[in-house]
Design a protein around this nucleic acid. Structure first.
Lengths: 266, 266
DNA sequence: GTCATCACGTTGTCCTGACAAGTTGTCATG
DNA sequence: CATGACAACTTGTCAGGACAACGTGATGAC
């Protein structure tokens, strides 16, 4: 650790920086294929998460930090910027960079996509109700950008948690894009299967609404008739902008809610 | 417009770039206080939105683009990167940067925060139902991170569209943070008033759910008894991480749905 | 005591230069 | 004709430097 000498005769006394208050030492591996800025960003994030950099703490100026780590300023800036984009840090010109004093550190990632994207078919048990090839209806064809009547996989799953039904998921994938195996779906999850099939997701468009349950839906989800349901339709696109998946899902409002964090982009 | 000479004797014939296919001319103003990369990003975005750069079109390599515009490569990269972050462009090493072939170009911004954040009290008429100072309940105090019983503004508004009630908004703001004037609220909007009071929003945490309407709520929103409602609770934080606003809103599910786009961060 | 002024420290922007790594098409080879 | 090696092109990463813009605190004038 380096100590910053304080010039007592100076007219300006700088604020206490993280470096003089006990900054964690970062270990950077130049031989690693992982980019340096990314290594630094990860270690900074870990330090924040770990509490070594407390909320409100100043990070120390970029130039000194770069010199201390043996990096150039652009590299350090890139690392810091990525954490600013994540909402972990705030930069202020003339002031410095400080750890955001946030009550909510955990759920930084967008959920609602991820809880279905990563956890699609994870520990919360999933029962495949049906898995068949159908002809695309007008609604599905429009969402996937294919011709009406084209063959699509239609996948229906019931999501359970603690033995209780949570949601009913109805997904459509163009047949040409993927091979669907019922067995693997219960263990691997839909999005993971897409990924391993070489499809890289890029973006998704979601609509979240509500409506009253039909008798059939109420029975399926173990809800009283006419209960309020949360609905979600999503179309997911790959790199090239082609729609790869369309889903129309319903959730038990009494047991589920979408929860996410937004950042105000300056 | 500059034409790129093609060397016929070259063993490698490069693909057709946007420049040789008729790239729009960008006008950059160096004397403007607006950063160059931002000017370029905006003009690129406009060109994409306008259709001058069609989906799938290659942008031309960064070095040549930089030379053509009289900019350095980092500046051009910064502009391109901002559009990549927005999901408008995709970069591929060895290939180039191309406009994402997306069906949905318009609603790139997150709505659901913005439609309340920017449009809070805009053309969709807003009627202030009540505006009073109360003592914070346990729920409100917890959300705002203040002591129970502290004084808070409690603001209730009815949002109308086309003469029909759309939503009922209930907001809480700590008294010490803001002065609320009923008159200005109907024209200016809550978030705009905060902004002009020097509060810069940083992030927000939202929960979206659904439930059946109580008789009172049904009457207020002109819905039949027990109709499904969309609910949203939001806590907004400023730079320093302090909660500045808490809102518990209900929407007519028959007339409103949250609509937003997600990007998969690589 | 109050206020404007100034110096200082910080991030913001921009430049030039260089090499590494991934992708694609061409060409020579079998 | 198939296939592998190669070259060209592109973005990714990193360095080092320079000046501008902004905010803060201290200083000095009033």
């Amino acid at each position: 650790m380096t100590r910053v000498p304080v010039n007592r005769s100076s007219a300006y006394s700088p604020p206490v920086t993280a470096s003089s208050a006990g900054a964690p030492a970062f270990a950077l591996d130049r031989s690693s294929p992982v980019p340096l800025y990314y290594q630094l960003a990860q270690q900074l994030e870990a330090a924040i998460e770990h509490g070594e950099l407390r909320p409100g703490a100043l990070l120390g100026n970029e130039i000194e930090l770069a010199g201390r780590l043996g990096l150039s300023r652009p590299t350090v800036r890139q690392a810091i910027q990525s954490l600013v984009d994540k909402g972990l840090l705030v930069r202020r010109r003339g002031v410095g960079t400080q750890v955001v004093h946030s009550q909510v550190k955990r759920p930084l990632e967008l959920s609602s996509l991820y809880d279905d994207l990563e956890a699609a078919g994870q520990k919360p048990a999933t029962r495949v109700v049906s898995n068949a090839v159908e002809q695309a209806s007008a609604e599905v064809a429009a969402a996937l950008g294919i011709a009406e009547g084209s063959e699509v996989h239609h996948l229906e799953r019931l999501r359970l948690s603690h033995g209780q039904p949570m949601a009913f998921l109805s997904n459509y994938v163009a047949v040409s894009r993927l091979d669907l195996d019922t067995g693997r779906l219960e263990s691997t999850g839909l999005y993971r299967m897409m990924r391993s099939a070489g499809i890289t997701l890029h973006s998704a468009r979601q609509t979240v609404g509500a409506r009253s349950a039909t008798p059939e839906e109420a029975r399926l989800l173990d809800e009283p008739g006419g209960a309020a349901l949360l609905t979600m339709q999503r179309t997911a696109y790959d790199d090239t902008g082609r729609a790869v998946e369309y889903g129309a899902h319903i959730y038990r409002a009494s047991r589920y809610a979408f929860d996410f964090q937004l950042l105000v982009r300056a």
